[in-house]
C-alpha cells in the first residue's frame, strides 16, 4: 500500500443542473491503478472532471498531485491527462501529426520544435506512419489510440480515462487496455466493462454521489454486480 495520497477529496459537494451529483464526498487515493464504477448518473464523470479542473467543487477541497484544484486549476491539464468517451470530441486537428504537435505545444514546447517532434513522438508508439493521415480516416479504435498518445506525450502524472472503451470492438479494447496497463503513470479508469479492472489496485463504487463501495476490485465488483442484478 503506498503512503501519501496523490489525490485527496475532502467533503466535496457538487451540484449540476440543480441536482446534487457529489454529496459530501471524501476520498484519499494513492494507488497506481484505480477503477471507478457506478450506474449512469452516479457522479463518476463529475468526480473525474473535478480532478482535471473541468468542474469546480462548490464545497470542500480537491488536491491532485500537489495541486489545489481551486487555486491552481490552470496547471491541472499539464499534470492530469484526460481521455474522453468519444474521440471525435477530443481530436482538434485535421491530421494526426498536427494533433500530436498541439499536445507537445500545450506541454510547453515551442511550436516549431513541437511540429518537428510530432513524428518521433508517434514513433515511440509505433505509429509514425500515421503522421500525415487525416483523422477522420482513422477507425474508432485508432482515434481512441491517437487520443491516448496525444495525452501521453504531455507526460502527465495522472491519466484519467472516462468510459474510453464503450464504442470499441473487443480486440481494439484489449489493445488499448494493454497500452494502459503498461503506463508508468497513475491511472483512473471509469468503465462499465467490469472485466477491465483486472489487475487494478482498487475500485471505487459511487452511487447517487456518495461512496457505496471501496476496496479490492473483486469484493467491490461482486457487491456491485449483486446490486445491479437486484435492480434489473
Amino acid at each position: 500500500m503506498p503512503h501519501a495520497p496523490l489525490i485527496q477529496l475532502e467533503n466535496v459537494t457538487l451540484t449540476r443542473g440543480g441536482r446534487v451529483v457529489l454529496d459530501d464526498l471524501s476520498l484519499d487515493i494513492a494507488e497506481r491503478r484505480v477503477g471507478l464504477i457506478g450506474t449512469n448518473g452516479s457522479g463518476k464523470s463529475s468526480l473525474v472532471r473535478l480532478l482535471n479542473g473541468l468542474l469546480a467543487a462548490e464545497k470542500g477541497r480537491v488536491t491532485v498531485h500537489g495541486l489545489d484544484a481551486a487555486t491552481q486549476a490552470g496547471e491541472l491539464p499539464r499534470k492530469v491527462g484526460f481521455i474522453f468517451q468519444n474521440p471525435d470530441h477530443q481530436i482538434i486537428f485535421p491530421t494526426v501529426a498536427e494533433e500530436i504537435a498541439f499536445s507537445l505545444e500545450q506541454a510547453g514546447m515551442p511550436r516549431r520544435e513541437a511540429a518537428k517532434e510530432a513524428v518521433p513522438a508517434l514513433a515511440r508508439f509505433q505509429r509514425a506512419h500515421w503522421a500525415e493521415r487525416p483523422v477522420h480516416a482513422l477507425s474508432e479504435g485508432e482515434k481512441q489510440f491517437l487520443c491516448i498518445i496525444a495525452v501521453l506525450v504531455m507526460r502527465p502524472a495522472l491519466v484519467i480515462l472516462d468510459e474510453p472503451f464503450s464504442s470499441l470492438d473487443l480486440p481494439t479494447r484489449r489493445r488499448l487496455e494493454s497500452l494502459v496497463a503498461g503506463l508508468e503513470q497513475q491511472v483512473i479508469l471509469v468503465a462499465h466493462e467490469l472485466d477491465a479492472f483486472e489487475g487494478y489496485d482498487r475500485v471505487i463504487w459511487l452511487h447517487a454521489g456518495r461512496l457505496r463501495g471501496d476496496g479490492p476490485p473483486e469484493a467491490v465488483i461482486a457487491a456491485y454486480r449483486a446490486f445491479a442484478e437486484a435492480l434489473a
Binding site: L54, P77, P110
Partner: peptide, 22 residues
C-alpha cells in the same frame, strides 16, 4: 452538443494557446 464536448476536451488539454512561442 458537439461544440460543448469539444470545448471541454480542449479545456482538458489546457485550453486555446494564447502565447506566440514559435
Amino acid at each position: 452538443r458537439l461544440s460543448h464536448h469539444t470545448a471541454e476536451a480542449l479545456a482538458a488539454r489546457g485550453g486555446a494557446p494564447r502565447g506566440d512561442r514559435r
